[in-house]
């Protein structure tokens, strides 16, 4: 009777050993800079892979390319499960949808100088929602760097991406430019995949846009709060690692606030100087924060904003500069958490 309520049939000692192993794996992963690049086969989504390659310059960085395939369901197929047709295809030696796209992602990584195909591989399979399940190919470089191609199945794509985070954790999630991004009110009733993932992602999220390759520099915004200063420091470390110049930016809503805004960027500059990072430029502007950031930052490769950590309802009532920038910018935006 007591055993009925146990989560596991393992003994306590075995359970502790499992826990320890899991903790070790997590600790190992946390010692690495792990980027999750999500693709859906569109050209926009490969920008995410390209950006992942550029933001992972050293051997302590791993790239995980993820394609989430909606679960096969059979009611609309006249009672014959779609998985039967899928099984037939697999037996005939055909790829699942998504494999082609993951292979193309590998080519994109090669173009960016990460030739993972020549590394030793490990293949993994896990039973999931349908017959084909979750599949992954892990490429391990001799220097310890990992590139993983993962084909995941899920009833809902956004939830599949968020589930994948749980298998991480990851330092950064990169997504391609969304075809639509709903306003704060409409988002209460539902939103697109990129928007949903960006809103719910536990780690920092970067929305990659085409054309940013020709631009240079991290455009890091701060409002002087301790939260945003943390974000400045962490994103500046990334900028330094990938060799991008840093521009610090602050917005005052009126002329009266100019002094405070200047003080914010000066403080940020001093903070970076203390850890040995030099800001190439500092800028201050007057106006509405989101539109000023979009106007000034769109010439840079990446705009960095700090997530306010607001829920859907709080965003509806108070708005969110971070989301307004992610929505409106014409370049990549990194939403730091």
């Amino acid at each position: 009777m007591f055993n009925f309520f146990r989560r596991t049939q393992l003994s306590d000692r075995q359970e502790r050993a499992v826990e320890r192993t899991l903790q070790q794996i997590r600790a190992q992963r946390r010692a690495r800079f792990r980027i999750l690049a999500c693709i859906d086969g569109t050209d926009e989504s490969y920008e995410a892979v390209r950006m992942a390659a550029r933001l992972a310059p050293t051997d302590d960085c791993d790239i995980i390319v993820l394609y989430v395939r909606p679960t096969d369901q059979g009611l609309w197929s006249g009672g014959l499960q779609v998985k039967l047709a899928r099984q037939n295809m697999l037996e005939a030696g055909f790829d699942l949808p998504g494999i082609r796209d993951l292979k193309r992602a590998l080519d994109v990584l090669k173009e960016e100088g990460i030739d993972a195909e020549s590394w030793p591989t490990e293949i993994g399979h896990q039973d999931a929602w349908d017959a084909a399940g979750d599949n992954k190919v892990e490429y391990k470089s001799p220097k310890g760097r990992n590139v993983v191609l993962k084909l995941k199945t899920s009833p809902d794509i956004a939830s599949g991406i968020l589930d994948q985070y749980e298998l991480g954790p990851y330092n950064l999630m990169i997504l391609g430019e969304p075809s639509r991004w709903r306003g704060n009110f409409k988002a209460v009733f539902g939103s697109g995949i990129v928007q949903q993932v960006t809103m719910l992602s536990p780690c920092s999220a970067l929305v990659a846009r085409e054309g940013s390759a020709k631009k240079r520099g991290f455009f890091i915004c701060t409002d002087g709060t301790s939260r945003s200063m943390q974000a400045v420091r962490r994103s500046a470390v990334l900028a330094q690692a990938v060799g991008e110049p840093i521009t610090l930016f602050s917005v005052a809503t009126s002329e009266a606030g100019r002094g405070a805004a200047e003080e914010n960027v000066e403080n940020a500059r001093a903070l970076l100087k203390a850890i040995g990072i030099k800001a190439a430029e500092i800028r201050v502007s007057i106006g509405k924060p989101a539109s000023e950031i979009i106007a000034a930052g769109s010439d840079y490769r990446i705009i960095v904003v700090t997530d306010e950590g607001r829920s859907t309802w709080q965003r509806l009532l108070r708005g969110s500069v971070a989301y307004d920038v992610v929505r409106g910018a014409r370049t990549c935006v990194l939403d730091v958490r």
């Binding site: 997590r26 992963r29 792990r34 991480g168 954790p169 920092s204 962490r234 690692a241 958490r337």
Partner: peptide, 11 residues
């Protein structure tokens, strides 16, 4: 990068 840059939060 793993320690000082963007954080992988423990979910």
């Amino acid at each position: 990068l793993a320690r000082d840059s963007l954080q992988a939060h423990e979910p």
